[in-house]
Design a protein around this nucleic acid. Structure first.
Lengths: 137, 137
DNA sequence: CTAAAGCCTGGAGTACACTCCAAGGTCAAG
DNA sequence: CTTGACCTTGGAGTGTACTCCAGGCTTTAG
């Protein structure tokens, strides 16, 4: 599989794939002509990378995880641990978002959840009737 | 309120506050000596900015939202709309994360959720017994 | 009065993750 | 045998969000 094919199969640009290679995330063997040659599994790997990115992992972290995986004595266990870690991250993020959602719902039910002036801290000193015009937010 | 006070009250560095000012997010009036002077509400505004950032909004988007708010004919309505929008974003993200969590849980229950070779696409051609050693992931 | 802490500005530097470009090699179709 | 699509490299440029620094003024504590 050449780079263009992998790019369209994974939805990741050729340039990004080469960038990932430099970053040590995705190696490729080479054809006689020097073209990169990817195995079919690379698509899955890229999907994984995308997912990990969505979870807030940097490419460096993802690379470290992948490297650790490749050298783990018990790969099944290592994979399990990694997935479990990710699951934890996801659940923590879910909790945060749920809290945020509840807060937003509460604020929507109120008149005046946060106050800020029309232009915070700027010389809007045109009189007391202007000072009274506050932005509810 | 001077910049250092606001920095410690909001947990945002002085440099960042000045950066936000350049970005148009946070204006400050000035004291006679040229020092920035912030109203107490600035703390709330910064908490809002932090929240919006957590939601994935760029500073530019946040700035646009704030500007729109300040010039809205009906500020209460505008605020309500913005909160409702944010709520939607949060709920969408919750859905995505929930799907991801379910996927992770499923994979944890399986033997072999994703397959990749010890070093994807690299000359690990040491024999068939090596090829059989695949990484479940 | 001095020292330390705090503030100012402009500008440079950093980290991350791309994205684009130039100059050139490869390959299949017409 | 040329055209066009695809590939190679190295390196420069982009956007985001800071972060740090130099050089200099202001304020506060002792």
């Amino acid at each position: 599989m050449r780079i263009g094919e992998l790019a369209s199969a994974s939805g990741i640009s050729r340039d990004s794939l080469r960038f990932y290679e430099r970053a040590g995330l995705l190696k490729a063997r080479r054809q006689q002509n020097g073209y990169r040659d990817y195995p079919a599994e690379a698509v899955q790997l890229l999907l994984y990378i995308k997912t990990a990115q969505k979870l807030g992992f940097s490419l460096a972290e993802i690379g470290t995880n992948l490297a650790r995986l490749r050298t783990a004595p018990d790969q099944d266990a290592a994979v399990g641990a990694l997935l479990a870690d990710k699951l934890q991250v996801v659940e923590q993020r879910l909790d945060e978002l749920t809290a945020l959602r509840n807060e937003l719902r509460n604020r929507l039910g109120q008149t005046c959840p946060l106050r800020l002036q029309p232009s915070v801290g700027v010389e809007t000193r045109t009189g007391p009737e202007r000072a009274a015009r506050r932005l509810d937010f």
